[in-house]
Amino acid sequence: MMRKNWWKILAAVMVSSSVVAGFMGPVPVLPILNETIRNIYFHVPMWFSMIVLYLISVIFSVKYLNSGERNHDIMAVEAVNVGILFCFLGLLTGMQWANITWGDPWPNDPKLNGSAIATLMYLAYLVLRNALEEEQKRAKISAVYNIFAFPIMIVLLYILPKLTDSLHPGSGGNSTFSDIDMDHNIRPIFYTAVIGWILTGIWICTLRYRLRLVENNRNKLD
């Protein structure tokens, strides 16, 4: 699976076609947003990819605790590394978009604060890994922290914005995607972009994982 090519080609095709269709396709004409509605094809998929990568990391942490196999731990770390990359991309693009539409790069929005805290959580995970010297101990304890933090992050990202008012659609007093922006023209392109970027994230993650494996094998031979 990891070494197959078809899904990598699919990722490339989906992302690049979503770029073209995202620029040229019809979009609903909305006040304030105007043409920037097209950002939905580029900004939102970053968050979807981030969540999927963190989910992969948690799954592999659980697997590691069950099996004690070192490869699972490597996969968990690399998924977090790539997830953080996507998180920063999402934050940066979101700040640029918010600056234009909401007039402030960091409006006090629960989703924004939530994702910033989630970033802190995974940076703490990396700090914890650095603090532990012994390899097995590091793998085990960081897996425990990863599993411990993940459900709280889910609460943070999904339940908190629903409790308080948010500028993002689908929470607080705002209408959801399906009401305004997600008309039938947008939907196929949006899902193409989301799946394409998720596959790309997984691809980068597997590349890093395979590199680590090669490195480890080389160290073993020496």
């Binding site: 690049s16 076609s17 269709a21 396709g25 019809p26 023209n185 196929p188 392109i189």
Partner: peptide
């Protein structure tokens, strides 16, 4: 890529 671009553009 180009095939799928054409498909998506036809919807557009």
């Amino acid at each position: 890529t180009f095939l799928s671009i054409i498909c998506l553009l036809r919807m557009a």
